[in-house]
Each structure stands twice: as structure tokens, then as C-alpha cells.
């Protein structure tokens, strides 16, 4: 299912995107969304992950922020979060691509580096994808980042200087 999504994105980013599918499966998600890509980028060991960590968004912090976002969203509807134990289920091993991860990869900064050499594009690919994730102004990721108290625009600006 992944081929159409990342045909020209390079080996490093492909690995990170494949890991995002695992993130979605582990969370019992029916769709792979931008937040799963954010998590797999944070776990990648790439320079982009270091930029996230420097901003206060290492992997555990992102997990916590995403959980906080969902809890707040449910409370907005008067629902208390349900315990993970009650939600335990065998995972769907074939989640489909969600709209937000497609949007993130469309918004990524890949074109900005089209004239650079392939090694340089490869070096920047994960950071470019992260910029795409962070450029979403609405939805789960910007909400989680705002609740975490992190300056999304400053983080994008830093990544654009890579």
C-alpha cells in the first residue's frame, strides 16, 4: 500500500515512513496519520529527531502530548478517557493511509532542495518531511504541540535552515 506514497522520497525517509505504519498498528489505529509519522521521525535518530528533542519533543514527550490532546478532545465532548486495558485488541495489521500523512508529505520541503545533489537531498529528507508534518495548522498534531507548549513556527524555521 505504501508505494504510491513515497516513490521518490529516498531510502532514509522510506524507512521512517515504514516505521510510521508500525506506530499506527501499535496504537490500534485504522489509518496511518501525520502523528504516526511525527513519532517515527522522533525515533529515527535523524538530525530532525534531535531538533524535535531540543524543542522539548522527544519521543516520550510526543506520546504524552498526543495522549493529552485526545483526552482533552474527548473531555470537550463530555467523555472521560477509556482505560487502555478495556481497549486492548488484536491489532489490524493493515492500516490504510490517512489524509493527514498525505498532506504532510505534500507540504514537505522536498522541492526546495530539488537542485541539490542526491546525497544532500537524502540528508535533508526526514527534516523536509517533518516540516510538512509541522506545517499543518489544524488537527491532531498542531493541537498536541500547542498543548505541549512548543513553538511550532520556531521549530519549522530551525528545520528550514538545515
Amino acid at each position: 500500500m505504501s508505494e504510491q506514497l513515497h516513490d521518490d522520497l529516498g531510502v532514509t525517509l522510506k524507512t521512517v515512513i515504514t516505521a510510521s505504519i508500525e506506530e499506527a498498528i501499535r496504537r490500534g489505529a485504522a489509518k496511518v496519520e501525520a502523528e504516526h509519522l511525527l513519532l517515527s521521525i522522533a525515533a529515527s535518530g535523524d538530525a530532525a529527531a534531535q531538533a524535535l528533542a531540543d524543542a522539548g519533543l522527544d519521543y516520550p514527550a510526543i506520546e504524552a502530548a498526543l495522549q493529552d490532546e485526545r483526552a482533552r478532545a474527548l473531555r470537550a465532548a463530555g467523555i472521560e478517557p477509556v482505560s487502555d486495558e478495556r481497549l486492548h485488541a488484536t491489532r489490524n495489521s493493515r492500516p490504510v493511509w490517512g489524509a493527514s500523512i498525505r498532506d504532510a508529505l505534500r507540504r514537505g520541503d522536498f522541492k526546495a532542495h530539488r537542485n541539490r545533489g542526491s546525497a544532500e537531498r537524502e540528508r535533508l529528507a526526514v527534516a523536509d518531511a517533518l516540516i510538512g508534518v509541522l506545517r499543518a495548522d489544524l488537527g491532531t498534531v498542531p493541537r498536541a504541540i500547542e498543548y505541549a507548549g512548543v513553538d511550532r513556527a520556531a521549530l519549522i524555521a530551525r528545520l528550514e535552515r538545515f
Partner: peptide
């Protein structure tokens, strides 16, 4: 407005996971 829309997302996700379980 964003809170209400996010609640829809969260409820759908919760309903899906609760159904699986």
C-alpha cells in the same frame, strides 16, 4: 470550533478501538 471537531476525531478513534476490543 476546533475542540468540537477534534472531539469528533477522538470519538471516532475511540469507537473504532472499542469496537475492535
Amino acid at each position: 470550533e476546533a475542540d468540537d471537531l477534534a472531539a469528533v476525531v477522538a470519538l471516532r478513534e475511540l469507537a473504532d478501538r472499542l469496537e475492535d476490543a
